[in-house]
């Protein structure tokens, strides 16, 4: 089914449509959330929160405001970051700026069921460090251009073009 149709069915509280969207995006959200919280159980908890929130706030989505994926991504990043600020999150190791998604690909052994075919791990290792940094901040952490420019200490105008080049590299590797 076309994405738009699926999303509008979801907005009318259609459980099947919800499940299809979940199948499409849950791995991605799980990756983003886990990258922020770095704990399996907490990631699972946040996953539940995120998809419950998405269900209850389905009305607030409109294609004018952006992609459905991006909308979900926003909810996921915010929920995960909120979690790291909550009282029950007691892990001193958590430092959002210093951990990039790349080390999950390097250390986790079981990440790769669905994605193994693409061999994304070996691709990502080929991406330049400056690329994984910027992709991590913009997509996994939801930084604005300004915040990314401050963190990476590069001019704000460079963020947009560098990110474009990096995503192009990624796309070439994935053949997209």
């Amino acid at each position: 089914m076309e994405l738009n149709a699926l999303v509008s069915k979801f907005q009318q509280k259609d459980g099947k449509a919800f499940e299809s969207l979940y199948d499409m995006y849950s791995e991605s959200m799980h990756g983003v959330i886990y990258n922020i919280v770095r704990d399996h159980d907490i990631a699972q908890e946040v996953m539940q929160d995120v998809f419950l929130k998405a269900w209850h706030n389905a009305d607030s989505y409109s294609s004018k405001k952006g992609r459905f994926f991006t909308w979900l991504l926003n909810i996921a990043r915010n929920a995960a970051i909120d979690k790291t600020r909550s009282k029950d999150f007691k892990n001193a190791r958590k430092n959002l700026d210093s951990e990039f998604f790349v080390d999950i690909l390097e250390t986790e052994e079981n990440y790769s069921r669905a994605t193994d075919g693409i061999g994304i791990k070996s691709f990502v290792n080929k991406l330049a460090a400056k690329c994984t940094e910027i992709i991590d901040l913009l997509y996994f952490k939801g930084f604005t251009q300004k915040e990314a420019s401050k963190t990476l200490k590069i001019p704000i105008g460079t963020i947009k073009t560098r990110n474009r080049n990096c995503i192009n590299e990624l796309r070439q590797m994935l053949g997209v």
């Binding site: 979940y22 499409m24 799980h30 990756g31 983003v32 399996h40 994605t115």
Partner: peptide, 18 residues
């Protein structure tokens, strides 16, 4: 490409949570 990349960071099968 971003969906694939972010999914690669998923630590386990998320379908089991549904």
């Amino acid at each position: 490409s971003i969906v694939s990349l972010t999914a690669a960071a998923s630590p386990s099968d998320s379908k089991q949570f549904f």
